[in-house]
């Protein structure tokens, strides 16, 4: 096993070898879900806390399911009814949970970098479950897992995604999913095209490992292996970044007509929840190309792999002991 990072704050913490390691682990954990009793004692006695400063039922449930399938104890901290409403600081909240002996904190926050701040306050491992517009690393890992699975089904078994042509379409600028996916997919060798209006692409792409960025989706369709459709926050309309939903759908929506122009084997991903009829047509979302439900299903296995990887890296037992020493 390769060395595990102490925290998973960004896909960059893993690097290519770490990503491959997590995906291999996820392969074996995916098999557990098929058992009559989908549970193993691997993390018995460990405690995983989901610490969500921003509402998200889906991601929290996915992490809690993952922890429970590994027999870890789980705790849940959310904004509603918590001390945050009494004005407690991020540091105090983090230190309080840390003092309870939590092994892993899974942190979601509306501000970029908040999990990194938590990591600087605590001795627990920290997993970024989405921070502002920064990153959502486990989403990117489950996306890679899902694409690898689709590749394997097509007979091209490999750990990497070398040469895979991926278009990430929509609001890249405000998307933590896009930032993590660009890092993860490029680390595995995929060729990435960002597609959206300039108001929704990042102000600068300096240092981004992408092949192209532009507004012409139609020009790319014929040669894509993957269309990754991002969710369009309806708020973008209010802030004047787009004239209308109709115009957005017409230019960037994955319509049935556009889907027909994709190569036969191309697949469609979406991080959910979908705005059917806006960024993706109902028919495309429900077509065999769509891997959306596979993404959700794989999310549990990938998060099991991440928890296991962080807690069982070769150097982790020693780190933990050192942290507990007086």
């Amino acid at each position: 096993m390769s060395g595990a990072p102490r925290h998973l704050l960004s896909v960059a913490d893993l690097g290519r070898a770490g990503i491959v390691e997590v995906l291999r682990l996820a392969d074996s954990f995916a098999e557990i879900a098929e058992r009559p009793i989908p549970k193993v004692p691997t993390l018995r006695g460990r405690t995983v806390a989901t610490v969500f400063f921003e509402a998200s039922t889906r991601t929290r449930l996915s992490f809690e399911t993952a922890a429970k399938r590994l027999s870890a104890d789980t705790m849940s901290f959310g904004t509603a009814g918590s001390s945050l409403s009494k004005g407690e600081s991020l540091r105090d909240t983090a230190e309080t949970l840390d003092a309870m002996g939590v092994d892993v904190m899974v942190v979601r926050h509306a501000a970029a970098g908040a999990p990194a701040r938590v990591a600087s306050y605590v001795s627990a491992h920290v997993v970024n479950a989405g921070d502002g517009q920064h990153e959502h690393p486990t989403q990117a890992l489950l996306d890679c897992f899902t694409l690898r699975e689709a590749r394997a089904a097509a007979g091209a078994a490999a750990d990497d995604l070398e040469g895979l042509r991926v278009a990430i379409v929509g609001d890249v600028r405000h998307s933590r999913v896009a930032r993590s996916d660009v890092l993860a997919l490029s680390a595995l060798g995929a060729e990435i095209h960002l597609v959206g209006p300039a108001t929704l692409l990042p102000p600068s792409l300096e240092g981004w490992p992408v092949k192209s960025a532009g507004a012409d989706l139609d020009a790319l369709l014929g040669e894509l292996d993957v269309v990754y459709v991002l969710r369009l926050q309806l708020e973008r309309m209010r802030t004047g970044l787009l004239p209308s939903l109709r115009e957005y759908s017409a230019r960037f929506g994955l319509t049935a007509g556009r889907a027909r122009r994709l190569p036969e084997s191309a697949v469609v991903l979406h991080p959910g929840p979908m705005n059917r009829g806006v960024e993706i047509d109902d028919a495309v979302a429900s077509s065999p190309r769509s891997r959306v439900t596979r993404q959700v299903r794989n999310g549990v296995a990938v998060r099991m792999a991440v928890l296991f990887h962080l807690l069982n890296g070769p150097d982790q037992a020693a780190t933990r002991t050192a942290a507990a020493a007086p």
Binding site: A112, Q133, R173, P203, S204
Partner: peptide
Amino acid sequence: HEGAWSSRLGIPGQS
């Protein structure tokens, strides 16, 4: 500052 770093870090930038 809005630029390469804000784009990478996901922090909304000020032009």
